[in-house]
Design a protein around this nucleic acid. Structure first.
Lengths: 109, 109
DNA sequence: CAGAATCCTATGTGATACTG
DNA sequence: CAGTATCACATAGGATTCTG
């Protein structure tokens, strides 16, 4: 099984909470749930997330093996597609539960 | 239903991930799952967490209505008991899934 | 026993401008 | 289009000391 290195944490929760706790990360995963998306698409769908943050968190997620990327260069434009890996897909139920819990216990005016 | 204010987040995931993403928080919740614990007990069971962090995160969790506290003064010693609220209990399945996922996808050497 | 107060550093986050 | 680079600021986290 593929395993992420996380030596700096006292397993197992801390490492994951350190990923999901980063801003935009849960949203990014959720946005990628059904289909691959391009960078620009992601940015448009995730309101308020700057290119820098999006890029940075995608890098993190790729390091962790949660998101994968594929680039296609056609002419002078780049088509960069991001999608969830197996590992990433297995995270969806957790994110879903987080959303559900949030809906039930949090108000966002 | 009791709802936490979280105006600063784009509902609903971000607010929760901002709670569970804080260090020690998931562990604290998990440690309190079965029974109330005293401050010192918690500190002993959560290895590496300083009093300051423990106190700080417990405050956060109390603000969010996830943890509740009761103090009993007997003589010159204080017995401060922490336990999960209804809301906190409802968070357990999520934490459990996080632990499980961590066990399957993370290695901590 | 259960914390609060201080101080200091590391990290996260964001605005903005630039690049191939 | 899909990023990087730079700067600046806010927040998190930890070591240590103090208190009722």
């Amino acid at each position: 099984m593929f395993k992420i290195k996380a030596e700096e944490y006292s397993c197992p929760v801390e490492a994951l909470s350190n990923i999901l706790g980063k801003k935009w990360v849960a949203t990014i995963i959720w946005t990628l749930q059904k289909e691959e998306k391009r960078f620009g698409q992601l940015q448009r769908e995730i309101d308020g997330c700057t290119k820098k943050m999006l890029s940075q968190q995608l890098d993190l997620l790729m390091e962790q093996g949660i998101v994968e990327n594929e680039k296609v260069i056609s002419g002078n434009t780049i088509e960069s597609k991001y999608y969830l890996s197996e590992t990433g897909l297995s995270l969806l139920p957790i994110v879903e539960q987080m959303i559900e819990w949030g809906n039930n216990h949090l108000t966002c005016d």
